[in-house]
Design a protein around this nucleic acid. Structure first.
Lengths: 251, 251
DNA sequence: CTTATTCATGCAACTTCGTGCAACCTCCCC
DNA sequence: GGGGAGGTTGCACGAAGTTGCATGAATAAG
């Protein structure tokens, strides 16, 4: 049996059964589990299925993708969210970006805090329903499922109505020279627009984002006033940002 | 059964029932309670559900808040959602209201359906992230937490950009003489505006809404083209609407 | 206050995972 | 036909993940 033939068979099974167990299949084909696992790994890296312990599940592109990212470094993101939440002052108008870290921020806002949160992320909006005293303003637009945020001209237009005190921005890369960047052009536009509607911009930067750069530039570093990083972020990665004048908060 | 599959199942149950009992589920799957509890702990730490003594509740107290409402007649609402989802034709532009029934509708859209959904409900938007082929447009505005929908002039303005084929509306009352009504003035305005942006309006009417009237009028009956009711809705409550020319679909 | 669940934790047995490695195959060029 | 490059496969082994049980703490219910 050819490798690619076997891979197709795996995908067929996955579609048919809604699940795929590596061990069962290896016995059925009388091949070692290693071979099957290798196939699964490759298919997963092509995004054609979602790898899980023991086998695989169908790839539901956006969700699984997002859920996967969500699990990664959840601890650090929660800590960053909590620390950033503490930076919000009573009565402020805050713009909150999308992403898991932002949702954690929303979750950890002090229960008695009175503030207004403006967001283009439906997830953040839903998370804030739990908060008694926070007024939520949702910015609408086309939903970009990969990140679960609204994007496009509509968001930018709606944001123009807002003057906020601070914008908490998520990025995929923050680099001393390259500045802030993210993986989607539309998202980069929206982040830039939101940044310009706030007096300050604070970047939520989990460790893997430090000194990384993605395809689309959002803004140079000098448009950022601060960043929140994990408590154990290496000092030598942080130093360049401090030199650039950013206020660095450790979670 | 794969671990992650089990976790998905837990989340599904939670969505479906609005609650989750560890012991019951462990017996059902013939696994130790420890395993289930471990899953719950992990899901809780990812913020995907809210851990409580004995089991779990939906993550966003948003939904938990709903949970009271949600558990009530959930079966009927799911059925209505499914039936209404079947009314959507490929390629249509659909406006979807907020509320539990609408979320069920979103969940039950045929997986291969290509369509555009316009909504002012962040919950609906999040639910549709899972759908591969549906384009989602989010209407922004101030978030009305009780119903988890955006309301206000911004929504109405954004809706003005849209010409939809059909609007699926949730109400708190539909009455032969009093027409459609709901419990909040702002919401009534928004529903009316959305209704005018669609060629047809179809009301999602679980049994307790029939012949009920709430404080704020949305529109008279003649602006409605159809309604979806539970399969066992009493014929004598339905007859007046049929006489008024509405197409009644039984779930 | 008492009692019965339910919970978190540590532990041991077991399974599954990733990596490096060697054997083997196929294809292609000489 | 010889031989090398590139790819595939199975195995070994240490790492990581999963599960059920025991224990004592925490919680809900009467």
């Amino acid at each position: 049996m050819l490798t690619s033939q076997r891979k197709n068979l795996i995908l067929d099974r996955l579609q048919r059964d809604g699940q795929f167990v590596a061990k069962t299949f290896s016995q059925e084909l009388r091949l070692s589990e290693d071979t099957i696992r290798r196939d699964l790994r490759e298919l997963a890296s092509e995004g054609r299925l979602q790898r899980v312990h023991g086998g695989a599940l169908p790839a539901s592109p956006a969700v699984a993708d997002f859920a996967g990212r969500q699990r990664l470094g959840m601890e650090g993101k929660t800590a960053i969210g909590r620390a950033a939440a503490a930076l919000v002052q009573p009565g402020q108008v805050v713009i909150l970006d999308g992403g898991t870290t932002a949702v954690q921020l929303a979750r950890h806002l002090a229960p008695n805090l009175r503030a207004t949160v403006v967001t283009h992320s439906p997830s953040v909006a839903v998370a804030l329903v739990a908060h008694r005293h926070v007024e939520v303003v949702l910015l609408g637009g086309r939903l970009f499922k990969h990140s679960i945020v609204a994007v496009g001209a509509a968001v930018i237009e709606a944001a123009a109505q807002v003057r906020a005190d601070v914008f908490f921005m998520g990025v995929t890369g923050i680099h001393p020279e390259a500045g802030l960047s993210t993986g989607d052009l539309e998202e980069a536009h929206v982040k830039r627009a939101l940044s310009r509607r706030a007096a300050e911009t604070i970047v939520l930067a989990s460790s893997e984002k430090l000194h990384a750069a993605s395809a689309y530039v959002i803004a140079p570093l000098n448009e950022v006033s601060g960043m929140v990083v994990e408590v154990d972020a290496p000092e030598d990665l942080i130093a360049p940002f401090k030199r650039a004048g950013l206020t660095v908060t450790r979670a």
